[in-house]
Design a protein around this nucleic acid. Sequence first.
DNA 1: ACGGCTTCGACT
DNA 2: TAGTCGAAG
Length: 710
Amino acid sequence: MPVAKPERCDGRVIAHVDLDCFYVQVEQRKQPNLRGLPSAVIQYNSYKGGALIAVSYEARNFGVKRSMRGDEAKETCPQIQLVQVPVARGKADLNSYRNAGSEVVSVLAQKGRCERASIDEVYLDLTDAAETMLMETPTENMQDFEEEVLKSHVLGLESKDGSDAKEEIRKWLCRSDAGYQDKLLACGALIVADLRMQVLNETEFTCSAGIAHNKMLAKLASAMNKPAQQTVVPHSSVEGLLESLPIKKMKQLGGKLGSSLQSDLGVNTVGDLLQFSEERLQQRYGINTGSWLWNIARGISGEEVEGRLLPKSHGSGKTFPGPQALKTLASVQHWLNQLCEELNERLHTDLDQNKRIAHTLTLHARAYKTGVSDSHRKFPSKSCPLRYGTRKIQEDALILFQAGLRDFLGFYNCKINNGIEHSNWGITSLSVTASKIVPIPSGTHSIAKYFGGRFQFGSSSNQSLDNVIVEAAPSSPSGSENCSGLIPYDMQLEYLEEDTGIEHARACLDQQDPFCNLSRKVDGLTEESSIISPPGSEDIMTESEPCRDFLAKEPMLVSNTSRLKAVEKKKTAGKKLQGNCSIVNFFNNYRNSQSSLEQKNVINVHGVKISSSLGSPSASDSNFTCNQVELPAENSHEEIDTNNSGYSRANMPQGRQAWSYNIDEIDPSIIDELPPEIQDEFRAWLRPYKRTNVVKRGSSITHYFLPDKK
DNA sequence: ACGGCTTCGACT
DNA sequence: TAGTCGAAG
């Protein structure tokens, strides 16, 4: 007998899966002798034994908590095993955890739409799979349940004295009088139990899960029975669950908003929210938040599970608390370099593995100014188009930092006194972030074929982008082969012409070596430095008067102005290209990221020159850039304001002429050639009128739901 | 004067 | 758009 399928969106089956004390598990997998022991992962051993960032459940039983220091943990639980988080470049290196998280995702993503919510959490939309299962096998006919699913917890299911818990679960799972939605949830529980076992088998990690009809409830449920267990929220138990749930336990209400609800409205549990009308909540918290609150009080959440398996940004940061605060430009540069190196490595991995390119570089910092009451003023974040290559990222990050510092110190305080004892500022945290990451439509095998099929994507690729993109030496035997074979000859000419101006600028830039004055600082010499405009900014000529004095002296400034001139030229050249058919633009883009993959390189992964033909490293610095052809994408950071008429729709990534092709003219079939994990992402990207996600929680969602608001 | 570090989303 | 802010884990 077919079961009617309600049109309601609360007929969904959503799971939230949460890896148990994930970092600990990753370390335990590396060192199996740690299994079963009270243990914790710490970082930085220096100060009070390091900071705990993950604690095993055994250790929790001894009262060890996250947010303890290592010393404290030892006192609380003397036998605790403390494992240090890997360190690279003087900072915590979370890559092994990220990779382990990816392993899990690839298992979990099989049965339905999967959203990677954090390094150790995912949401799954299992609605389709559950419906299919229910259609094929009505739950009341089910008999052989896996042990794992019988260990589920079902909210609201009373365990009577002396009754066999597993038997109760079994009965619940195949209750014939259950509503359709609960039957779907039962199927969800089966699927999730299966997935969790698969995760364990394939990755050795245990996880906990919540199964409910929306994300909010699934998330709540997954935390209720840990570790290595799962919890189902039947529809009938939602009201009771929320009624007594402390308001601060709800996602999004753990911070100020939750506090405000408590102090201003006297709301202590989610149930307490029920007495307020939607209008009242809107009036107090705004239209969106008000509606959202009204809904969650009723267990309503319309958030979709986004099909996203990959992070939207990569960041690398470090704090320098208290006495460690950075007081010199040289030390800032040192750490920026480390952070940028890591960032570059991760960008490169992303490119290799996922064929994605990031378009924006952002620098964040925290700073104080001594002797100023205003000293907690925030250091402004700055961003610019991202150019690939370690040294470029480092260079741009430093420029962004200086731009931020200029703003931070105030307009009139242009000159920085960088003497070690006299600096009046300190930096307490630094981070660099790469965002606006979009897939390369590399599916372009279709397009590649059109040009003769000499494209190879990805290549074998331990090659780093640095090697490949700019740092190739023209004097090396293969240097002259830069683009031939990759680009039709007439197109090459166009590119070369277009690049000439830039190239000249870069030659100037590199000959003067903007870093030489800074590298001197690293040796401990005192120096002074001017503050300059961020990359991509064109207001350099309108720099404040005091700054202008430095124009002549500062290599950085010179190189920047040179670049700007080059930009002007490039802009006009770019226009010529713009008018062409989209395939040319497309190609432009493709070439930016790919063509040089075939070049031989003279620099190894760490940026150390290993060329034998170029003499001493210092000499080669100015040498090898002289004749190089720098690819458009590498320079296009100056193009932040160039036209993007090629975009046919709103919401497309902007700021790069290289990316402006007509999406209408892309053969949709190329999507199939993308790595499966980014296909969805790319499809969404192509979707013409995809609404920006302005009102995620709020009135726009509200109409989607049914309940009467009276 | 610290829990570090990372990511995401909303708002303006 | 760029930049700020809040939140979570």
